[in-house]
């Protein structure tokens, strides 16, 4: 019998529990030819704000044992070009694959404005859309922890974005807080439909010979294998604090990593940094989850949610 892989992420119907992590998958179409898109339930695209944004200076990344430290700085074209160029390109190449649009801004008003623009565009376009509100990027001043490090500010931001859109609203949280639960509740109170976590973990690498930081931004965010256990703990904590569905991400390189997230209480899982070294990882994780369901007697991926034995 075929395993039922469908999940519902806060109103977004996904054919599989897998998506991509914002910032690692461009505007969705770049990996055509290398990634098996039929294994994805959605593609999550790079953060967009109202106006074009140049991002940080080079160098923007450095490879470290167990991962990657980046400080790209949310370079992007702005909402106008995103809607006029990247959305039509995505729909032309990927048809009905749901698109999760990561958004950010320099003020609460800007977040709401971007969400409203997406809401209007989605009503006119084919295919499903969702909004992922980024309040946890460590590499820009505004739009980063400014909004994601104070539960009251976060509740207010989510509330304003909620008023601006009827699209499924996901809020992406940071791992670097003492306790993730107040932030999860703030999202819930503000009217979010789902939570995503984790963003990268603030990190720094120093070139000791040059006695300078390696990154032009000096600090960055760590992703990759090393962050996975941190993310599993954050997802587990969040799942016990809310009934909202969780989109989990952080160091998924094989099916086992995604299964940990699902068992900890996630509804869906994003793959990010792993795609850089192995675009085949999307197919491998997809097939591995199905194989696991077969071996453990689950008929549906949905049954895995929170199925960890205490």
């Amino acid at each position: 019998m075929a395993i039922d892989t469908r999940v519902n992420l806060g109103g977004l119907e996904m054919a599989t529990p897998l998506t991509t992590a914002s910032g690692t998958f461009g505007y969705g179409t770049e990996y055509l030819g290398a990634v098996d898109y039929s294994c994805l339930g959605a593609a999550t695209v790079k953060g967009v704000r109202m106006s074009p944004w140049p991002g940080n200076q080079m160098p923007r990344h450095v490879e470290v044992p167990g991962g990657l430290v980046n400080a790209i700085g949310l370079q992007g074209p702005g909402i106008d070009e995103f809607l006029s160029h990247y959305v039509p390109l995505y729909r032309e190449k990927l048809c009905g694959l749901p698109m999760i649009v990561n958004i950010w801004g320099g003020s609460i008003e800007e977040y709401a404005e971007v969400a409203a623009r997406l809401d209007a565009a989605a009503a006119a376009a084919s295919g499903a859309f969702a909004v992922e509100c980024n309040v946890s990027c460590p590499n820009v001043k505004a739009g980063g922890h400014t909004f994601g490090q104070d539960p009251e500010v976060l509740r207010c931001l989510v509330g304003e974005v909620r008023k601006a859109t009827r699209l499924p609203l996901v809020v992406k949280l940071a791992p670097n807080v003492p306790d993730v639960r107040p932030y999860v509740r703030a999202c819930e109170d503000g009217g979010a439909d789902a939570i995503s976590l984790i963003n990268t973990i603030p990190a720094m690498v120093i070139d000791v010979e040059a006695r300078r930081p390696v990154l032009a931004n000096r600090t960055g965010g760590l992703s990759g294998r090393a962050v996975h256990p941190v993310a599993v703990k954050a997802v587990w904590d969040a799942a016990r604090a809310t009934s909202l569905p969780i989109l989990a991400m952080g160091g998924v390189y094989e099916a086992k990593d995604a299964l940990e997230f699902l068992l900890a209480g996630a509804t869906a899982v994003a793959i990010g940094t792993a795609v850089f070294s192995n675009p085949g990882v999307v197919r491998e994780v997809h097939d591995g989850i199905i194989d696991y369901c077969r071996r453990h007697g689950f008929d549906s991926v949905r049954e895995l949610k929170g199925a960890m034995l205490q």
Partner: peptide, 27 residues
Amino acid sequence: DRHMVCGVGACFACIQRTVGGNARCCI
């Protein structure tokens, strides 16, 4: 010649300044 991450235009790590803004060397 730039250090690259994704190689396909997805990550914006390999930037070159151009008259059109920060371009991705890989794509």
